[in-house]
Amino acid sequence: MLENIIAAVGVTAGVGFVCGILLSLASRFMAVKEDRRVGSIRECLPGANCGACGYTGCDGYAKALVEEGAKTNLCVPGASFVAEKVAAILGVEAEAVQNLTAFVHCNGTADAAAEKAVYEGVKSCKAASLLFGGQKACVYACLGFGDCASVCPTRAINVANGVAKVSPALCIGCGLCEKACPKHIISLIPRESRVAVVCSNRENGATVRKECTKGCIACRKCEKICPTNAITVQNNLSHVDREKCVRCGKCAEVCPVRCIADFGE
Protein backbone atom coordinates (compact mmCIF):
# COMPACT_ATOMS: atom_id res chain seq x y z
CA MET A 1 0.00 0.00 0.00
CA LEU A 2 2.58 2.48 1.19
CA GLU A 3 4.81 1.45 -1.69
CA ASN A 4 2.09 2.31 -4.18
CA ILE A 5 1.62 5.75 -2.70
CA ILE A 6 5.34 6.42 -2.66
CA ALA A 7 5.70 5.24 -6.26
CA ALA A 8 2.79 7.39 -7.44
CA VAL A 9 3.99 10.49 -5.62
CA GLY A 10 7.56 9.81 -6.69
CA VAL A 11 6.78 9.44 -10.37
CA THR A 12 4.51 12.46 -10.52
CA ALA A 13 6.98 14.58 -8.60
CA GLY A 14 9.82 13.26 -10.76
CA VAL A 15 8.05 14.12 -14.00
CA GLY A 16 7.18 17.53 -12.62
CA PHE A 17 10.76 18.04 -11.46
CA VAL A 18 12.20 17.16 -14.87
CA CYS A 19 9.72 19.48 -16.60
CA GLY A 20 10.54 22.23 -14.13
CA ILE A 21 14.29 21.90 -14.66
CA LEU A 22 13.79 21.85 -18.41
CA LEU A 23 11.68 24.99 -18.32
CA SER A 24 13.97 26.90 -16.00
CA LEU A 25 16.99 25.97 -18.13
CA ALA A 26 15.07 27.03 -21.21
CA SER A 27 14.12 30.36 -19.70
CA ARG A 28 17.76 30.85 -18.73
CA PHE A 29 19.33 30.02 -22.07
CA MET A 30 16.62 31.01 -24.47
CA ALA A 31 15.48 34.23 -22.87
CA VAL A 32 14.89 36.92 -25.43
CA LYS A 33 16.38 40.15 -24.25
CA GLU A 34 13.82 42.90 -24.20
CA ASP A 35 15.06 46.39 -23.72
CA ARG A 36 13.92 47.49 -20.29
CA ARG A 37 13.41 51.00 -21.54
CA VAL A 38 10.50 49.80 -23.68
CA GLY A 39 8.56 48.87 -20.56
CA SER A 40 9.34 52.04 -18.68
CA ILE A 41 8.47 54.21 -21.68
CA ARG A 42 5.24 52.32 -22.12
CA GLU A 43 4.33 53.22 -18.55
CA CYS A 44 4.80 56.93 -19.29
CA LEU A 45 2.57 56.89 -22.34
CA PRO A 46 -1.11 57.65 -21.77
CA GLY A 47 -2.35 54.26 -23.02
CA ALA A 48 -5.19 55.71 -25.12
CA ASN A 49 -3.89 53.70 -28.13
CA CYS A 50 -5.20 56.48 -30.36
CA GLY A 51 -2.55 56.04 -33.04
CA ALA A 52 -1.91 59.76 -33.44
CA CYS A 53 1.85 59.09 -33.32
CA GLY A 54 1.55 56.97 -36.46
CA TYR A 55 2.42 53.68 -34.75
CA THR A 56 0.12 50.85 -33.76
CA GLY A 57 -0.89 52.02 -30.32
CA CYS A 58 1.23 52.91 -27.33
CA ASP A 59 3.13 49.60 -27.33
CA GLY A 60 4.16 50.14 -30.92
CA TYR A 61 5.31 53.68 -30.22
CA ALA A 62 7.31 52.63 -27.16
CA LYS A 63 9.07 49.99 -29.24
CA ALA A 64 9.71 52.41 -32.10
CA LEU A 65 11.18 54.96 -29.70
CA VAL A 66 13.79 52.54 -28.42
CA GLU A 67 14.52 50.50 -31.52
CA GLU A 68 13.99 52.88 -34.41
CA GLY A 69 14.79 56.16 -32.71
CA ALA A 70 11.37 57.65 -33.32
CA LYS A 71 10.85 61.28 -32.38
CA THR A 72 9.92 61.90 -28.76
CA ASN A 73 7.26 64.51 -29.46
CA LEU A 74 4.82 62.38 -31.43
CA CYS A 75 2.45 61.54 -28.59
CA VAL A 76 -0.33 64.08 -28.98
CA PRO A 77 -2.48 63.26 -25.93
CA GLY A 78 0.55 63.12 -23.65
CA ALA A 79 1.89 66.46 -24.88
CA SER A 80 5.07 67.97 -23.45
CA PHE A 81 4.56 66.17 -20.14
CA VAL A 82 5.08 62.76 -21.76
CA ALA A 83 7.68 63.99 -24.25
CA GLU A 84 9.91 65.19 -21.39
CA LYS A 85 9.61 61.92 -19.48
CA VAL A 86 10.31 59.85 -22.58
CA ALA A 87 13.29 62.01 -23.50
CA ALA A 88 14.63 61.60 -19.97
CA ILE A 89 14.46 57.81 -20.18
CA LEU A 90 16.13 57.76 -23.58
CA GLY A 91 18.66 60.37 -22.52
CA VAL A 92 17.96 62.76 -25.37
CA GLU A 93 16.89 66.36 -25.61
CA ALA A 94 13.10 66.85 -25.32
CA GLU A 95 11.53 68.28 -28.43
CA ALA A 96 8.81 70.90 -28.23
CA VAL A 97 5.29 69.61 -28.58
CA GLN A 98 2.47 71.67 -29.94
CA ASN A 99 -0.67 71.26 -27.91
CA LEU A 100 -3.39 70.76 -30.48
CA THR A 101 -7.13 70.46 -30.48
CA ALA A 102 -9.49 69.47 -33.28
CA PHE A 103 -11.76 72.08 -34.83
CA VAL A 104 -14.68 71.69 -37.26
CA HIS A 105 -14.54 74.39 -39.92
CA CYS A 106 -18.25 74.57 -40.59
CA ASN A 107 -21.17 76.25 -38.93
CA GLY A 108 -23.83 75.15 -41.39
CA THR A 109 -26.51 74.40 -38.80
CA ALA A 110 -29.95 73.26 -39.89
CA ASP A 111 -31.33 76.83 -39.81
CA ALA A 112 -28.41 78.33 -41.77
CA ALA A 113 -27.47 75.80 -44.45
CA ALA A 114 -29.96 75.09 -47.22
CA GLU A 115 -30.61 71.48 -48.13
CA LYS A 116 -30.72 70.41 -51.74
CA ALA A 117 -32.19 66.97 -51.12
CA VAL A 118 -33.68 64.73 -48.47
CA TYR A 119 -31.19 61.99 -47.67
CA GLU A 120 -32.60 58.72 -46.41
CA GLY A 121 -29.65 56.37 -46.86
CA VAL A 122 -27.12 54.93 -44.44
CA LYS A 123 -26.52 57.32 -41.57
CA SER A 124 -22.90 57.99 -42.27
CA CYS A 125 -21.12 61.04 -43.67
CA LYS A 126 -19.02 58.84 -45.94
CA ALA A 127 -22.08 57.24 -47.54
CA ALA A 128 -23.96 60.52 -47.82
CA SER A 129 -21.04 62.38 -49.39
CA LEU A 130 -20.89 59.75 -52.15
CA LEU A 131 -24.34 60.87 -53.32
CA PHE A 132 -23.78 64.23 -55.00
CA GLY A 133 -21.69 65.43 -52.05
CA GLY A 134 -24.39 65.02 -49.44
CA GLN A 135 -27.78 66.46 -48.63
CA LYS A 136 -26.69 70.04 -47.98
CA ALA A 137 -26.53 72.61 -50.75
CA CYS A 138 -22.96 73.51 -49.77
CA VAL A 139 -20.64 70.69 -50.82
CA TYR A 140 -18.11 71.74 -48.16
CA ALA A 141 -20.62 71.46 -45.34
CA CYS A 142 -20.53 69.21 -42.32
CA LEU A 143 -23.11 66.49 -43.02
CA GLY A 144 -23.78 65.87 -39.36
CA PHE A 145 -23.94 62.08 -39.29
CA GLY A 146 -21.06 61.97 -36.86
CA ASP A 147 -18.39 59.82 -38.56
CA CYS A 148 -15.93 61.92 -36.55
CA ALA A 149 -17.85 61.41 -33.30
CA SER A 150 -17.84 57.64 -33.75
CA VAL A 151 -14.05 57.42 -34.09
CA CYS A 152 -13.30 59.83 -31.23
CA PRO A 153 -11.63 57.84 -28.42
CA THR A 154 -12.67 60.38 -25.77
CA ARG A 155 -16.18 61.20 -27.04
CA ALA A 156 -15.19 64.82 -27.39
CA ILE A 157 -17.35 65.39 -30.48
CA ASN A 158 -21.07 66.08 -30.35
CA VAL A 159 -23.34 66.51 -33.32
CA ALA A 160 -25.89 69.21 -32.54
CA ASN A 161 -28.29 70.85 -34.98
CA GLY A 162 -26.66 69.13 -37.94
CA VAL A 163 -23.07 70.15 -37.24
CA ALA A 164 -20.30 68.39 -35.37
CA LYS A 165 -18.71 70.31 -32.50
CA VAL A 166 -15.50 69.46 -30.69
CA SER A 167 -15.32 70.06 -26.98
CA PRO A 168 -11.72 71.25 -26.42
CA ALA A 169 -11.79 70.20 -22.79
CA LEU A 170 -12.16 66.54 -23.80
CA CYS A 171 -10.19 66.62 -27.05
CA ILE A 172 -6.78 64.98 -26.86
CA GLY A 173 -5.76 66.14 -30.34
CA CYS A 174 -5.19 62.67 -31.80
CA GLY A 175 -6.52 63.70 -35.22
CA LEU A 176 -8.60 60.56 -35.83
CA CYS A 177 -11.63 62.75 -36.64
CA GLU A 178 -9.56 64.70 -39.14
CA LYS A 179 -8.91 61.47 -41.01
CA ALA A 180 -12.49 60.20 -40.70
CA CYS A 181 -14.16 63.32 -42.10
CA PRO A 182 -14.96 62.75 -45.81
CA LYS A 183 -15.27 66.50 -46.31
CA HIS A 184 -11.86 67.25 -44.78
CA ILE A 185 -13.25 70.15 -42.78
CA ILE A 186 -11.75 69.14 -39.43
CA SER A 187 -8.23 70.29 -38.66
CA LEU A 188 -5.98 70.41 -35.64
CA ILE A 189 -5.33 73.91 -34.39
CA PRO A 190 -3.05 75.05 -31.57
CA ARG A 191 -4.91 75.15 -28.29
CA GLU A 192 -3.82 78.70 -27.52
CA SER A 193 -5.23 80.16 -30.75
CA ARG A 194 -7.93 82.79 -30.29
CA VAL A 195 -9.73 82.78 -33.62
CA ALA A 196 -10.65 80.19 -36.23
CA VAL A 197 -12.60 80.36 -39.46
CA VAL A 198 -15.83 78.37 -39.14
CA CYS A 199 -16.41 77.81 -42.82
CA SER A 200 -14.80 75.81 -45.61
CA ASN A 201 -16.78 77.05 -48.61
CA ARG A 202 -14.56 78.11 -51.51
CA GLU A 203 -17.34 79.43 -53.78
CA ASN A 204 -17.76 83.14 -54.45
CA GLY A 205 -19.89 85.31 -52.14
CA ALA A 206 -23.11 85.20 -54.16
CA THR A 207 -23.13 81.40 -54.39
CA VAL A 208 -22.31 81.06 -50.71
CA ARG A 209 -25.26 83.27 -49.71
CA LYS A 210 -27.62 80.96 -51.60
CA GLU A 211 -26.18 77.90 -49.89
CA CYS A 212 -25.67 79.02 -46.32
CA THR A 213 -26.31 82.17 -44.30
CA LYS A 214 -23.27 81.59 -42.11
CA GLY A 215 -20.70 80.99 -44.86
CA CYS A 216 -17.60 83.04 -45.63
CA ILE A 217 -18.46 85.42 -48.49
CA ALA A 218 -14.86 86.50 -49.04
CA CYS A 219 -15.60 90.16 -48.30
CA ARG A 220 -11.99 90.71 -47.10
CA LYS A 221 -13.03 92.80 -44.10
CA CYS A 222 -11.00 90.58 -41.81
CA GLU A 223 -7.99 90.91 -44.09
CA LYS A 224 -8.16 94.71 -43.98
CA ILE A 225 -8.55 95.06 -40.22
CA CYS A 226 -5.84 92.57 -39.25
CA PRO A 227 -2.86 94.52 -37.83
CA THR A 228 -0.29 91.85 -38.70
CA ASN A 229 -1.64 90.55 -42.04
CA ALA A 230 -2.19 87.23 -40.38
CA ILE A 231 -5.56 86.63 -41.97
CA THR A 232 -5.84 86.41 -45.74
CA VAL A 233 -8.55 85.42 -48.18
CA GLN A 234 -7.43 82.65 -50.53
CA ASN A 235 -9.82 80.86 -52.91
CA ASN A 236 -12.76 82.86 -51.51
CA LEU A 237 -12.05 81.67 -47.98
CA SER A 238 -10.39 83.29 -44.98
CA HIS A 239 -7.21 81.70 -43.63
CA VAL A 240 -5.48 82.45 -40.37
CA ASP A 241 -1.70 82.28 -40.26
CA ARG A 242 -0.99 81.03 -36.72
CA GLU A 243 2.58 82.32 -36.76
CA LYS A 244 1.55 85.91 -37.42
CA CYS A 245 -1.69 86.06 -35.41
CA VAL A 246 -1.37 88.27 -32.34
CA ARG A 247 -4.68 87.10 -30.90
CA CYS A 248 -6.41 90.51 -30.98
CA GLY A 249 -9.76 89.14 -32.09
CA LYS A 250 -10.59 92.08 -34.35
CA CYS A 251 -11.34 89.87 -37.38
CA ALA A 252 -14.06 88.06 -35.47
CA GLU A 253 -15.66 91.37 -34.50
CA VAL A 254 -15.72 92.71 -38.03
CA CYS A 255 -16.94 89.61 -39.86
CA PRO A 256 -20.44 90.36 -41.20
CA VAL A 257 -21.55 86.70 -41.31
CA ARG A 258 -19.91 85.80 -38.01
CA CYS A 259 -17.97 82.95 -39.53
CA ILE A 260 -14.83 83.66 -37.51
CA ALA A 261 -15.07 82.15 -34.06
CA ASP A 262 -13.54 84.07 -31.17
CA PHE A 263 -12.54 81.82 -28.27
CA GLY A 264 -11.69 84.84 -26.11
CA GLU A 265 -8.50 85.56 -24.26
Binding site: T12, V15, G16, C19, G20, L22, L23, A26, S27, M30, A31
Partner: peptide
Protein backbone atom coordinates in the same frame (compact mmCIF):
# COMPACT_ATOMS: atom_id res chain seq x y z
CA UNK B 1 -1.55 17.36 -18.28
CA UNK B 2 1.70 18.21 -16.51
CA UNK B 3 3.85 17.18 -19.46
CA UNK B 4 1.69 18.87 -22.09
CA UNK B 5 1.59 22.15 -20.17
CA UNK B 6 5.38 22.14 -19.72
CA UNK B 7 5.89 21.15 -23.34
CA UNK B 8 3.77 23.98 -24.66
CA UNK B 9 5.62 26.47 -22.50
CA UNK B 10 8.92 25.09 -23.71
CA UNK B 11 7.85 25.26 -27.35
CA UNK B 12 6.71 28.83 -26.89
CA UNK B 13 10.15 29.83 -25.55
CA UNK B 14 11.85 27.93 -28.33
Amino acid sequence: ILVIAALVQFVEML
